[in-house]
């Protein structure tokens, strides 16, 4: 069954090796190994808040978990969100600690909002780095609203720092999926008109809690 595949592999590699027998020179010899691509200006909290808000993300700062709980309760109350989807143990524990009620048996498919943590926050781009090992692949993208709870200790400057963090945290192999999520799902496929909430969440919240 795989005979054909095997020979395709060999044929392609053979063609590549033959072609590369004639090398081409490095295009830009003077360019340094890795120039400073991006400049880190200002506090990470501030950079993240500005960049995330510019993407229509809803940012909130909380000085501790008690304030987080208060802000969440207010949000759930004003929006009348009852069907909250949580699949992470640490978020369940946080909610239990702060006595926020989580109704049982909520499906991702018909929830009001999904609440997750994240691996880290990227200040420069206003992105959350999410992983399949932590939140799974679907919970942060299928719900109409995504709420992410993060701590100030999780802030890093750039994507590069995010990759390093992941490799450090998972030395025996990175999660099968990581994604940099930057604000609500959007499209500009119709006359380049910006519309949010295409297939992913229409609203994305980030509650940044001081500490940990």
């Amino acid at each position: 069954m795989y005979v054909k595949t095997l020979s395709s592999r060999e044929n392609i590699l053979k063609k590549i090796k033959q072609a590369l027998a004639k090398p081409v020179p490095l295009p830009f010899e003077e360019t340094s190994e890795s120039p400073a691509f991006f400049i880190n200006e200002g506090e990470l909290e501030l950079q993240f808040a500005e960049n995330f808000a510019a993407l229509q993300g809803r940012f909130s700062f909380c000085s501790d978990e008690a304030e987080l709980a208060q802000q969440l309760q207010t949000l759930f109350g004003t929006r009348q969100w009852k069907k909250l989807f949580v699949n992470e143990q640490n978020i369940r524990e946080l909610f239990a600690r702060q006595q926020i009620e989580l109704p049982p048996g909520i499906n991702l498919a018909d929830c009001d909002a999904s609440i997750t943590s994240c691996e880290c926050l990227i200040a420069r781009t206003g992105s959350m780095l999410l992983s399949s090992a932590q939140t799974g692949r679907t919970s942060s993208v299928y719900a109409p609203v995504h709420i992410c709870i993060a701590y100030t200790s999780q802030l890093v400057f750039d994507l590069k720092d995010g990759f390093e963090l992941i490799k450090r945290k998972y030395p025996s192999g990175i999660p099968s999926l990581i994604t940099f999520a930057s604000g609500p799902s959007r499209t500009a496929d119709i006359e380049k008109t910006l519309v949010t909430g295409v297939h992913g969440p229409k609203e994305v919240f980030c509650f940044l809690v001081e500490g940990r």
């Binding site: 990581i178 940099f180 930057s182």
Partner: peptide, 9 residues
């Protein structure tokens, strides 16, 4: 950066 950049391994 686009909204989602996903790396699958």
């Amino acid at each position: 950066l686009t909204v989602y950049n996903t790396i699958i391994s």
